[in-house]
């Protein structure tokens, strides 16, 4: 028997196989992100030109913690009218949602069919009988596609962030850096969601092994992830490490750029009282007497807030959780493939 050195097929060779087999996906995913980036840059240039020509440039100086109303406080009704026209002309919410869903599109229309079709069409029986193990085939060919998607998602994220610096003024009542739109329109968020989408596509493709059922399941689960991230995860993270502060109910002053995670009333040494009950009672008290009413009942209002300095850490934690879930999905895919190679 002739002994031959055992050598695994290199990743560049696996990447070339991906190119031969999935040219449409290899071109389509980056093409989608780069096209979106180009459109966002073009749109942002148009907006910036409009703002400059209508002398609204100072609005941008407020930075990302401003709102349109604050931006307009010192302006004439004429400017308010022009700004209203600006708000109505561009549909920011729809664009934000479309950009946000690019990652989902990559997973749904490229990732899921990529894997599931291998099993549905029986192509895996060809690949698995070459000099490459199923695990190496899975990671060696899907990996480069995912990295390409992530790299172009970063470019799209940079464009989206730049676009949103202006576009946020068009949102109804403006937005704050704590709003979901502000958090999602960043390169970090785009790449995290793209990695999660591709990893989820990999897992569902490997486990379900039928294109259409896997696509439907992906849409349901990824939609669930989006809702969870916007609701439960954000609420949970914004409550981690928040700082309690006593505030004046009649004339509250909140720390600049902060996010108020909780509000409650309390008596000295007593438990937290729900603000909703007290607000209902306070409605029956004339406004000038509300402070005295609270004092008579030994009640003080408190908030728990996240200072602006926490924002970057909370965003990192949020995206870290998404990437960790993606990593778990990849590990689960490899485990499942080992346990259930084929029938």
């Amino acid at each position: 028997m002739t002994a031959r050195a055992i050598k695994a097929i290199s990743v560049p060779r696996m990447a070339r196989v991906t190119w031969y087999k999935h040219r449409a996906s290899v071109l389509g995913i980056p093409g989608m992100f780069l096209l979106a980036a180009a459109l966002l840059v073009l749109d942002s240039l148009l907006q910036r030109h409009w703002i400059s020509s209508h002398h609204f440039t100072y609005c941008l100086a407020y930075g990302d913690n401003s709102t349109s109303s604050r931006c307009l406080t010192q302006d004439a009704p004429y400017q308010l009218g022009v700004f209203a026209e600006f708000v109505n002309y561009w549909r920011t919410e729809g664009t934000v949602l479309a950009v946000f869903l690019l990652a989902a599109a990559a997973g749904l229309f490229a990732g899921v069919p990529w894997v599931a079709r291998e099993f549905e069409g029986g192509g895996f029986r060809f690949t698995w009988t070459q000099s490459v193990s199923p695990r190496r085939w899975l990671l060696g060919t899907f990996g480069p596609l995912t990295l390409l998607a992530a790299a172009t998602a970063v470019i799209c994220g940079v464009a989206a962030h730049w676009w949103f610096q202006v576009a946020q003024f068009r949102l109804d009542g403006g937005t704050t850096p704590w709003g979901w739109e502000s958090i999602e329109m960043t390169p970090l968020s785009m790449v995290s969601w793209t990695l999660l989408a591709m990893a989820l596509a990999l897992l569902l493709g490997v486990t379900i092994r039928r294109v259409l059922p896997a696509m439907i399941t992906f849409a349901v689960i990824f939609g669930g992830c989006l809702v969870l991230a916007r609701t439960w995860l954000s609420t949970f993270l914004f409550s981690v490490g928040d700082i309690p502060l006593r505030v004046n109910y009649v004339n509250p002053v909140y720390p600049s750029g902060s996010y108020v995670a909780q509000t409650w009333f309390a008596r000295p040494g007593g438990p937290k009282l729900s603000p909703m009950t007290l607000y209902a009672q306070l409605l029956n008290v004339p406004q000038p007497q509300q402070a005295r009413w609270l004092a008579q009942h030994h009640l003080t209002e408190w908030i728990a807030y996240q200072p602006h300095s926490h924002l970057v850490w909370l965003a990192l934690a949020r995206n870290g959780i998404l990437v960790a879930v993606a990593a778990l999905a990849v590990l689960a895919s490899v485990w499942w493939l080992r346990k259930h190679p084929a029938e």
Binding site: R4, K7, I9, R13, M14, R16, V17, Y20, K21, G121, G122, G123, F124, R125, F126, T127, T129, Q130, S131, V132
Partner: peptide, 25 residues
């Protein structure tokens, strides 16, 4: 295999090239 597993959406040249990349020998 009896199902003649090949990538039917590929061109013949690409199928051959893919097989070449998937094998050390």
């Amino acid at each position: 295999d009896q199902t003649v597993p090949l990538y039917r959406h590929l061109r013949v040249r690409d199928q051959v090239a893919a097989a070449r990349e998937l094998n050390d020998q």
